[in-house]
C-alpha cells in the first residue's frame, strides 16, 4: 500500500484508545512510507487528533502497536518519541517568544547537538564549531521555507502565515523522520496556503514523511499522496485522494456533507 515507492517507515496496527465509555480510536491500521504525504481526514470527533497524539506520545494507547522502522514506540513519552525523530508542529503557532526567528530554529536543531552542556558552558572549540555549522544549516532552512529575509526578526513580528512557515522550519531543523502537521492550513489565506503546500512537498521530496490532519479539502487533496479516512474512531477508507473521494462510505460520512468542497 505504498504511495511513493519508498520504504515503510511507520507501521500502525490495531491502535485503540478509549476515554471512559467513549471509544476515540477503534482498531486503526495504516502504514507510512519515507517521503510520503499521508492525510488523515474525517468528520469532527472521528479520532484524528487522538490518533495524532497517540503517535506523538502525548497519549498512551490502550491497545495496538506503533512501529518506527523496527522499533516499537507505542507507550514512549512525548520527548522520547521526539528524540526518535517524530516531530510535530502546533495547531496554534507556538514559537518561543523573546527569541528571534533564527534562534527559534536553533532550538529546533537541539536534537542534533552532540556537545554536552558543560562543553558549551566552557566555550570549548568543538561546541563552538558545531554551533556555527548549525547556524549555517538554519539559514539554509529559512531560505527553503521562504523566510530567508527574516532571520533576525522577532517572532512577534511575523504574520500568522509566516509563523506557520517558522513551525515547519523549526521542525525541519530537528532532522526528523516524520513531521506531524495538525491542520496546517487553518487560518491561512489562499496565497499562504499555496506557499505552505509547496514547502510540504519540498519536505516530502527530501525523504521526510508527512502526516497531516486537515479539514480543508482544497488544500489536502492535491497535496497528499494517500489519505486515511476515520469515522467515529474507525478507519473507513485508505487510498489515493482520487480513490477515496469516490468511496460511498466516505462520501456518506464526510464528503457528502461538503459535496461542494470536493476538488
Amino acid at each position: 500500500m505504498s504511495g511513493t515507492g519508498g520504504r515503510t517507515l511507520l507501521t500502525v496496527r490495531g491502535l485503540a484508545k478509549r476515554f471512559g465509555g467513549l471509544v476515540a480510536v477503534d482498531d486503526v491500521d495504516f502504514d507510512l512510507d519515507d517521503g510520503e504525504i499521508l492525510g488523515i481526514i474525517g468528520p469532527n470527533g472521528a479520532g484524528k487528533t487522538t490518533t495524532f497524539n497517540l503517535i506523538a506520545g502525548a497519549l498512551r494507547a490502550d491497545a495496538g502497536s506503533i512501529r518506527l522502522r523496527d522499533a516499537e514506540i507505542a507507550g514512549l513519552p512525548a520527548h522520547k518519541v521526539a528524540a526518535r525523530g517524530i516531530l510535530r508542529t502546533f495547531q496554534h503557532n507556538r514559537p518561543f517568544k523573546g527569541m528571534n526567528v533564527l534562534e527559534n530554529l536553533l532550538v529546533g536543531a537541539h536534537r542534533r547537538v552532540r556537545a554536552r552542556p558543560w562543553a558549551a558552558a566552557l566555550g570549548l572549540p568543538s561546541a563552538r564549531r558545531e554551533d556555527a555549522a548549525l547556524a549555517a544549516a538554519a539559514r539554509e532552512t529559512l531560505a527553503f521555507v521562504g523566510l530567508g529575509d527574516h532571520a533576525a526578526s522577532d517572532v512577534s513580528k511575523l504574520s500568522f502565515g509566516q509563523g506557520r512557515l517558522l513551525e515547519c522550519a523549526r521542525a525541519l531543523m530537528g532532522e526528523p523522520a516524520i513531521i506531524l502537521f495538525d491542520e496546517p492550513a487553518a487560518g491561512l489565506t489562499s496565497v499562504e496556503a499555496e506557499r505552505l503546500g509547496g514547502v510540504i512537498r519540498g519536505i516530502a521530496a527530501r525523504g521526510i514523511a508527512v502526516l497531516l490532519i486537515e479539514h480543508d479539502m482544497r488544500f489536502l487533496l492535491p497535496l497528499a499522496h494517500r489519505v486515511v479516512v476515520l469515522d467515529r474512531g474507525a478507519k473507513i477508507a485508505d487510498g489515493t485522494p482520487a480513490a477515496i473521494s469516490r468511496e460511498p462510505a466516505v462520501i456518506e460520512a464526510y464528503l457528502g456533507r461538503h459535496a461542494g468542497a470536493a476538488a
Binding site: 523573546g98 527569541m99 532550538v107 537541539h110 556537545a115 558549551a120 558552558a121 563552538r128 558545531e130 554551533d131
Partner: peptide
C-alpha cells in the same frame, strides 16, 4: 550557544 538557547 544552542544549549543556552535550549535552556531559554
Amino acid at each position: 550557544t544552542i544549549w543556552g538557547k535550549a535552556f531559554q
